[in-house]
């Protein structure tokens, strides 16, 4: 175990997988000579050379498409989007090619490809640079979607993603890259589709992922002071969802708050809530409350940005509400 930042944990996963399998290579803007726009790929060029660590021009559709073709022919590309905002430029390649290829070729061509990079709000980067993409990608069959909330999970999840024979969208957060925690040395895998209880509790299940788990933890601390014991559930993989784990927790607490950074309408939380209503209706003592980003593009102004995003206070409030404790 070593204590390291989230970006170092991701870096370690990349290095280990590139060492393990020479078919793995990484490409993206500024990943090589600049060591990554957020330094996630630091040292990769030095260790693996320009054949496997490749700086691309600003041509997202082109290099994402290239990765799909390379994957069809047996390589295992890791595509870094400098941020997932720019994945929108490559959307056709991701949705119409990567996600559909295995199925529409009748199982002839699978796409062992990872697309990774920061997702969601950065600090004050306004409307075109703050997209949360999980709900969009999770909509399409053919893609897995993963999003770690801490350094340890990030390492284990990314290693599994790289070994997966299907395309995986791996969503990180710029605002969490500096988060520090203990990370296991060497081989450590978090299986795709396995969630995790981050804190046991009895009164309410708070489902949150990625950066939202940090907010949920603070909220749980505050709730504990008032005698409400929240269970914190991190699905980690957003598609497929770990429904057995969710069911186990809901059966225990009978109350649910779902927190996501993305927009409310058609947000992933709506799908999770629907799954719970369908499978666990009889176990609920209260309607589920969803906390999500408000229904407006991200504004630049500090006060409006804060009002747009989920907050600890909003989570605490929601937890009290479902506990009929306001």
């Amino acid at each position: 175990m070593a204590v390291m930042e989230m970006k170092e944990a991701i870096n370690q996963a990349l290095k280990e997988e590139m060492t393990r399998d020479e078919k793995v290579f990484i490409l993206g803007e500024e990943v090589a000579e600049y060591n990554g726009a957020y330094k996630v790929t630091k040292g990769l060029l030095d260790q693996f050379g320009p054949k496997r660590v490749i700086d691309t021009p600003i041509s997202e559709a082109g290099f994402a498409g290239l990765a799909v073709g390379a994957a069809m022919m047996g390589l295992r590309p890791v595509v870094e989007f400098m941020s997932f905002n720019f994945s929108l430029v490559a959307m056709d390649q991701i949705i119409s090619n990567a996600a559909k290829m295995y199925y529409m070729s009748g199982g002839l061509y699978n796409i062992p490809m990872v697309m990774r990079g920061p997702n969601g709000a950065g600090p004050r980067v306004s409307s075109q640079h703050s997209h949360n993409m999980e709900s969009v990608f999770a909509h399409f069959p053919g893609l897995h979607v993963m999003s770690p909330s801490n350094p340890k999970d990030a390492k284990g999840m990314l290693k599994s993603a790289i070994r997966c024979n299907d395309p995986v969208v791996f969503l990180e957060n710029e605002l969490s890259y500096g988060m520090k925690d203990e990370v296991p040395d060497g081989e450590f895998l978090v299986p795709i589709g396995k969630g995790d209880i981050k804190r046991e509790g009895t009164d309410v299940t708070i489902i949150a992922w990625a950066r939202m788990m940090s907010l949920a933890k603070t909220a749980a601390d505050e709730l504990a002071k008032e005698g409400i014991h929240a269970e914190l559930l991190d699905p980690r993989t957003l598609k497929p969802l770990d429904m057995p784990l969710i069911a186990q927790s809901v059966r225990k607490t009978n109350r649910v708050v779902i927190v996501e950074e993305g927009h409310f309408f058609c947000g992933l939380g709506a799908q999770i809530a629907d799954n719970i209503y369908t499978e666990l209706f009889d176990y609920l003592d209260s309607p589920i409350i969803r906390i999500a980003q408000s229904e407006n593009p991200m504004p630049y102004a500090a006060n409006l940005e804060a009002a747009t995003l989920p907050s600890v206070a909003k989570i605490v409030n929601a937890a009290k509400h479902v506990s009929y404790n306001v």
Binding site: V125, Y300, A301, A302
Partner: peptide, 16 residues
């Protein structure tokens, strides 16, 4: 500065 008197009412910021 992200103020309402800005050319995009503080909603756009530096890039917009």
């Amino acid at each position: 500065f992200g103020r309402v008197t800005g050319c995009a009412r503080g909603k756009g910021g530096s890039m917009h």
